[in-house]
Design a binder for these strands. Structure first.
Lengths: 155, 155
DNA sequence: CGGCTAATGCAACAGTGTAGCGTTTGTCTG
DNA sequence: CAGACAAACGCTACACTGTTGCATTAGCCG
């Protein structure tokens, strides 16, 4: 759900980076994905577009995009990062992690009002709200394999 | 901050597990830590107590504790799991991840009132609220090395 | 005590991410 | 347009986290 599919090359150039094939392709892939995708998924998408996808270069490209505010990094449930493109909209929404297929979804509509007062000494960088469960395209009720579930969130 | 430092052996036996040296030692370490610690930290603590700490056994022991509701798994910022002991109190609080030292703190006092309505189709398992920044024992203001920071959480 | 099985420990492996370094290639200047 | 400089690439090798298989050990129960 890219709000406005801006020109990747222009965005990259605007940040003072060199406009390379990998960068524009990766950013374009992220824009098209519309949800945070893993390094692997990006690689597959690059394959489909016939763009080289060296593993290391891909990592560095994604890191570059993140450090230049063109992408965001979300921790996935399988200890792999997910990346999603950032237009010029604020990235302040929750994420949903599917326990079954491992995909991550942005919950744009969810703007939690977190009234948080941190204990003294803690300096806040950012907050992250994530939900875990089963996504619409995965079968089954709540899984009951690994211990007990807690179907409650807020008191 | 273990509410009541119950006897690890008794807790383990109560779940129908065999009371072994590794298990009791690991659970005891978790109780003493009072915050989610990594597999590595557990290993170091076991060393200090003169208990064997085979890597694989440690992983399996921790997983066993988690699957029997004696411990909780928290995703760390460095893609390593952190584990903390669970007495009989509910584990419904936020976590603070220090960007510098990587430690994770339980924010017991923080009971966020999340009024979340998931889009239809999503089935919720659990929710997690995490904060990232600098902990009291780490130096410096908010780091400014990797891109721009967002010092705001809630609108 | 004796036996059954859970739990252990060892080795080997898989996936994710990083470091070093020589080569390619944008981009800028003349 | 040509040349040069540095950013970006791509390769190899590596580190770390976590897993699988399997033979061995050791709780627990009779």
């Amino acid at each position: 759900m890219p709000e406005r599919p801006q020109d990747p090359a222009a965005l990259i150039a605007a940040r003072g980076g060199r406009v390379t094939r990998t960068r524009t392709a990766v950013l374009s892939v992220l824009f098209d994905a519309g949800r945070p995708i893993s390094h692997d998924e990006v690689g597959a998408a690059l394959d489909a577009r016939g763009v080289s996808h060296d593993r290391v270069t891909l990592y560095r490209t994604l890191d570059w995009l993140v450090s230049h505010d063109l992408a965001h990094k979300v921790a996935g449930p399988d200890r792999a990062w997910r990346f999603n493109a950032v237009g010029d909209e604020e990235h302040r929404h929750a994420h949903f992690h599917c326990d079954l297929c491992g995909r991550v979804f942005c919950l744009e509509s969810l703007q939690p009002a977190i009234a948080a007062t941190l204990p003294s000494g803690f300096r806040l960088g950012r907050a992250e709200l994530s939900f875990h469960g089963l996504c619409p395209s995965c079968p089954g009720p709540l899984r009951s394999d690994a211990g007990h579930n807690r179907n409650k969130i807020a008191p």
